[in-house]
Design a protein around this nucleic acid. Structure first.
Lengths: 145, 145
DNA sequence: TTGATATAGTTAGGTTCCCTAACTAATTAT
DNA sequence: ATAATTAGTTAGGGAACCTAACTATATCAA
């Protein structure tokens, strides 16, 4: 099989990856929230409350998280309070408004994702999750060497 | 199952998607080429030679392609010539230097992807391609309604 | 205990990739 | 012939990231 052929497994995988990256499964605008802001709100809603925690869950850098939280604070969706035990770190909490908008966003995401899950079926959905994780782990290990 | 639980299928899929988007399977720098430039070079190497064709294959807009090609032209990797049959459209061709760098980039990409294919095995690789395409098609249809 | 090192977070500035709006020039349809 | 369409371009901007350099606090080690 000629590697330059569009049908080689390598090419198909490269193409599938590129295409998939462009899928805007998370591009529903929820009010004034950008997708990255929604992701951070989800993290906080789940109970991760410091910049470091959010950074590790989302696998981005601290400045990225700081800046997203700055915007969320300006919009009145979160509040920072200094941790009494360790004054270097701050606890980020959702405001009432923040909770409302997060729940709203979450419902939209779940509805959308459920459409996909219905389309794929239970078995293929699980397969997909497993494979995506596996790919992620492979590249993570590759880069940390 | 509580939807807010990290273990709900919805949450796991949302998380898997976010993580996967961050995988930098295409972040090997090849000389002075950015990943987007590599993708365009691959298209041209495959024989797509107008802005419109590249745009449709990569599913971006014309200005995006134009600007990438501008940079590739500055770097001496491609050349534009006006199409005699339709003077609105231009044919983009690789220079000798362009061919060399494209082949080099392609070899790097294939080597990297083959690492993944080995890791997943033949069956799972095909499953992955199939599932990614399926997701892509689902969202494409969803958006065109 | 104090001085070095590590950790949490921030600010500033930059890169990449992508977009829309507004445009030119050429072609096709009425 | 003129209106509409198509191909491509330029200009400007936004989203999501990053690194470098910084402040402030905490911990470790001599």
């Amino acid at each position: 099989m000629d590697l330059w052929s569009e049908d080689s497994r390598e090419q198909r995988l490269i193409h599938a990856f590129s295409q998939f990256k462009k899928v805007d499964w998370n591009k529903h605008t929820v009010g004034d929230l950008k997708p990255s802001e929604v992701q951070v709100l989800f993290c906080i809603k789940k109970g991760y409350e410091t910049v470091s925690e959010v950074r590790d869950i989302l696998r981005v850098t601290s400045p990225t998280v700081t800046q997203i939280i700055n915007r969320l604070e300006e919009k009145g969706y979160v509040e920072r309070t200094v941790n009494k035990e360790d004054r270097r770190s701050s606890q980020v909490k959702l405001t009432d408004q923040g909770i409302a908008v997060t729940v709203k966003a979450f419902n939209m995401y779940v509805t959308s994702i459920n459409g996909l899950i219905d389309y794929l079926g239970e078995e293929e959905s699980e397969q997909l999750i497993g494979l995506l994780d596996k790919v992620f782990v492979y590249y993570k290990d590759l880069n940390s060497r």
